[in-house]
Amino acid sequence: MLELYHSEPNTFFLKPLIALHEKQATFQSRWFDADQLEQFGLGLDGEVEAHLQLEREGPLLRHDGTLISSSFFMLEYIAEALPGESLLPRAAYDLYRARASGQFLGANLGSMVPVLGCVKYLQPRLAAMDRATRDAKIAAIEPQERRFGWQALVDGTYTPEILATARDRLKFPVSRVEAQLAQGPWLAGPNYSIADIDAFAMLRVLPDLAPDVVNPTATPRLCDYLARIEARPAVRAALTTSRSGKPQQHFVPGVEPSRWG
């Protein structure tokens, strides 16, 4: 029995949806409305790994009773445990590159992309909710690292200066990806792999959120890369699971920013 608990197919939630469709796996979709904080009422936090949620918010995959969390490692799990097309690079060094890419982009995109998306799209929705209901739901969130992600949006913590800094810091990971794509069509060796699914899910929203950083003039290879992945049948199938019709406008708070500054 394979069940995926997810919200709209964007960022963290999009990754396993693509991988499961690439594998042509049979699974039950358990959709929840993250805007309404429904993920905190699913009763899925019994395992420490699901409770702590390294990305703060994200999909959960239940496979024969075991809860798998953390989106990049979920991709590795799907690639290793399920039959179907291999989504792993074959050579040891390409596997290293896939894992290093997941780690690098997780740290460098995983917090900033969700902040930009949440401020643009989620914050107005939270502001429109019944205040008492919303605040009670947020106050009940554990652990505190997850609660703070939501509280910051309600409190209006993200000033224009913080958002400008976030957009500016995106230039570093984006330029690395653009440079990697000059070496070959995919991020980890000669074939499309989990590294590309991982990167695509976070990068595809940047032409909207940071158009001065990602656009056909500044990052032509990245824009071509996003279009190539978007054209894959499995990616199109994953995106059609959207209930809103605009999955790219749905975000959840992401990885906690580095406490080192």
Binding site: L54, S70, M74, E76, Y77, E80, A107
Partner: peptide
């Protein structure tokens, strides 16, 4: 076992990104 491999990776990231920085 893939489930143990996943758990190994989850905890390594927990150590790297949560425990170790503190």
């Amino acid at each position: 076992d893939p489930k143990e491999r996943w758990r190994m990776r989850w905890w390594m990231r927990f150590f790297d990104s949560y425990f170790a920085p503190s």
